[in-house]
C-alpha cells in the first residue's frame, strides 16, 4: 500500500478540464504495464484516485496519465506543476485483450475521456500492425473542443487505423459527423468476426454494445472498461463491487457477455 513518488516531466492541456501528465519515477525505476491497466494516484494529501494509464506500453520509463478535473483529488493532480511529485501505486487491473484480437479486425469504440484508457491499446495494435486485420477507431465527444489527442488522430490514420470522430453538436467549422457513436458503428459496416474494445460513459457503452450486436459483433466479442468507486485498487476496500465482481481485480476490462446480466439490474 506504499506509494512511490513520480515526478511530473511535462504537462499538456487537452481540453478545458483535461490534462495529460508525463511522469517519471523519482527513484529511477520503470513501470511495465499492460494497456487497460490503471494506477492509484494522488497529489500530496488531496486523496487518491484510480486513473487509467494512457501512455505507450512500449515505453516503461515514462508513466503517462490523462486526467479530468472533476473534484479535489483530480483537481490537485491536474494542477501539479512540472517537477512536482505525485504518489503512485500500481499498475492494477485486467488489461485489453490484445492477444485475443490477433488475426482479427478490431474496432476501438471510445466516448469522451474513454479514449484515454484505449490509447495504450491503439499504440499496442499499431506497434504490431501486421498481426491484425482492419483497425477502426470510432470516437465520440461532446464538442470539437472536448476531443482528446487531436493531432495524434491524424498520425494514427497514417499508421493504419481508420479514424471516425463524431460530436454531440458543433459549430459550422466542424466538417465531420455530428451524432452519436452508435451511428458511427452502424456506418462502419464491421465484419462479424470483429473484436471490439469499448470505453466511455456507461450509457454510451450500453448503446454501443447494442449497435455492435446489430452489426453482427456479439457480446462475447465486445470488451468494455468499467468504472466504479475505487479506493484501494487491491480488492480490499470493497467499494468497487459490480455484482459478483470487483472492478479493480476482475476488471476494469470485462467481456461484455459477462457483464450484461449485471448492468441490466438497476442500482446494482
Amino acid at each position: 500500500m506504499t506509494p512511490a513518488g513520480y515526478r511530473v516531466l511535462e504537462r499538456t492541456r487537452e481540453t478545458s478540464d483535461t490534462w495529460t501528465l508525463r511522469l517519471r519515477a523519482a527513484g529511477g525505476g520503470t513501470m511495465a504495464f499492460l494497456p487497460g491497466q490503471f494506477t492509484m494516484i494522488s497529489a500530496g494529501g488531496a486523496g487518491e484516485i484510480p486513473i487509467s494509464i494512457s501512455g505507450d506500453p512500449h515505453d516503461e520509463e515514462l508513466l503517462v496519465h490523462t486526467v479530468r478535473d472533476v473534484g479535489p483529488a483530480s483537481g490537485a493532480i491536474c494542477a501539479a506543476a512540472v517537477g512536482e511529485l505525485l504518489w503512485v501505486r500500481g499498475p492494477f487491473g485486467r488489461p485489453w485483450p490484445l492477444e485475443e484480437a490477433e488475426g482479427r479486425d478490431v474496432a476501438i469504440v471510445a466516448g469522451g475521456i474513454g479514449l484515454a484508457p484505449l490509447r495504450p491499446a491503439i499504440l499496442g495494435l499499431l506497434g504490431a500492425r501486421e498481426r491484425y486485420g482492419r483497425l477502426v477507431l470510432l470516437y465520440g465527444g461532446r464538442s470539437p473542443e472536448q476531443l482528446l489527442y487531436g493531432p495524434e488522430l491524424e498520425a494514427w490514420r497514417e499508421r493504419g487505423i481508420e479514424v471516425q470522430v463524431t460530436v454531440d453538436s458543433a459549430g459550422p467549422e466542424w466538417l465531420g459527423p455530428v451524432g452519436v457513436v452508435p451511428g458511427l458503428i452502424r456506418r462502419a459496416e464491421l465484419a462479424p468476426g470483429t473484436l471490439a474494445m469499448l470505453c466511455g460513459p456507461e450509457v454510451m457503452m450500453r448503446f454501443s454494445a447494442g449497435s455492435l450486436a446489430a452489426s453482427g459483433v456479439p457480446a462475447h466479442s465486445v470488451h468494455a472498461s468499467m468504472e466504479r468507486n475505487m479506493q484501494c485498487g487491491i480488492a480490499h476496500c470493497g467499494h468497487c463491487q459490480l455484482g459478483p465482481t470487483l472492478v479493480c481485480r476482475d476488471g476494469p476490462v470485462y467481456r461484455w457477455s459477462e457483464l450484461e446480466r449485471w448492468t441490466a439490474v438497476r442500482e446494482l
Binding site: D17, V70, S74, G140, D168, P182, V203
Partner: peptide, 18 residues
C-alpha cells in the same frame, strides 16, 4: 429519437466531484 435522447443525457458532461 434514440440518438437524440442519448445526446440529451449529455453523457460526456461534467461529473460533480471524485
Amino acid at each position: 429519437l434514440q440518438a437524440a435522447r442519448l445526446r440529451l443525457l449529455d453523457v460526456y458532461g461534467h461529473g460533480r466531484g471524485d
